[in-house]
Design a protein around this nucleic acid. Structure first.
Lengths: 197, 197
DNA sequence: GTCCTTATAGTAGGAACCGACTAATAGGAG
DNA sequence: CTCCTATTAGTCGGTTCCTACTATAAGGAC
């Protein structure tokens, strides 16, 4: 009963939307995209319908009605249950309280940085720096045109602020490593030019 | 031919190990753990054997021999192919060059921070701060007892330095948000006490 | 009015992934 | 020398996840 939880965060997104009002899956995807939440959740129509089914099986949401307009496919509209409401808050609380170990692809790649040799490594990292810089600028622009312009409360985009902050940290670190590779202070076992010592 | 790539980074780990010397899957897992690479890759015996099979199907690695000691299960030893060598370097280079969008669970949760209300939110974030602090300390200790003690070259633990840096950034950000919730500078739509303005 | 593109709504089949299990051996406790 | 646990090595079955696809309707170009 402890970790019988669903782990896919897309389920959290669905649950969250249904706290507001009943919706059919396709609409959930649209609303999430409108609100820029596709940066936080991996929205994929196949997974979305599966996720909804799992939530139904667990009794966290339930179908409310099935409507059909013209000859388009039927839309099934879902609503949250009492249990679903409690589990939503519980899950949310835990996700915030307890950091989980994740496995970002960049960390995996850095584990084998040595294999590239110092020159290719510095080169690849330099290109990463430029991608990150661009992404950060775009995100700043987005925040300025929404929260900055007063059209959205800051709380509604707080996770974007978080992402921005982590990218900035990654950028700073990456830049520093490039410098250290180039000036030899990060020495490269396997090549004969060691750093100091 | 462009994105016919394997996406699971565990395959990168396998490929990387086989650049050194031939190995059987169980040994790969042990070596990765010895080298603290289980922080970078999600090692799971089920997935590992599947991944090895996929690599064989793609022709990036191939079985070299099957040995049996006593009546224990047979061990199949794999080695990398020429193609596997090229693809390893290529993939590595791309993972470093081009940042991919990931979906950390914390970001997902922060998207619904509002649902907790300011008090519960500050409370949960405060607990996160303490977990992060502890994790950072432990990681510093690990780095001191390996790279710091001169028993491992810094390059071999560079991804741990990266993780440490990102956790520190997350910690600083989380602390700041807690402060802003408590002093009211992060205002909470839905409750009536707005911030400044 | 016909053509083309985009939006709407969802389905289906297979690949990937993971947890739980098997089964043998080695190493100590007593 | 018998029991118990840890280590070695890998398999199996089900769930989850994703890509590719179907099919209708609406909106403009010309």
């Amino acid at each position: 009963m402890a970790n019988r939880k669903i782990s896919n965060t897309l389920a959290l997104a669905v649950l969250g939307l249904l706290q507001e009002r009943p919706m059919h899956p396709y609409e959930m995807a649209s609303v999430l995209r409108e609100r820029y939440k596709d940066a936080s959740f991996k929205i994929n129509s196949g997974s979305l319908y599966d996720t909804v089914e799992v939530l139904v099986r667990h009794g966290w949401i339930s179908p409310r009605e099935t409507v059909r307009e013209g000859k388009r496919p039927e839309r099934t509209i879902y609503e949250h249950t009492e249990l679903g409401h409690r589990e939503f808050l519980d899950w949310l609380d835990e996700l915030i309280r307890v950091p989980v170990h994740e496995h970002p692809k960049f960390m995996a790649a850095m584990s084998y940085l040595g294999a590239l040799g110092p020159d290719a490594a510095a080169d690849a990292l330099t290109e990463r720096v430029s991608h990150l810089t661009k992404r950060i600028e775009e995100t700043r622009t987005l925040l300025n045109s929404t929260v900055g312009a007063g059209s959205l409360p800051r709380l509604f985009m707080i996770e974007v602020e978080y992402a921005l902050h982590t990218w900035e940290a990654e950028l700073a670190w990456t830049r520093r490593i490039v410098t250290e590779i180039r000036d030899g202070s990060l020495s490269w076992p396997g090549t004969e030019q060691g750093g100091g010592q």
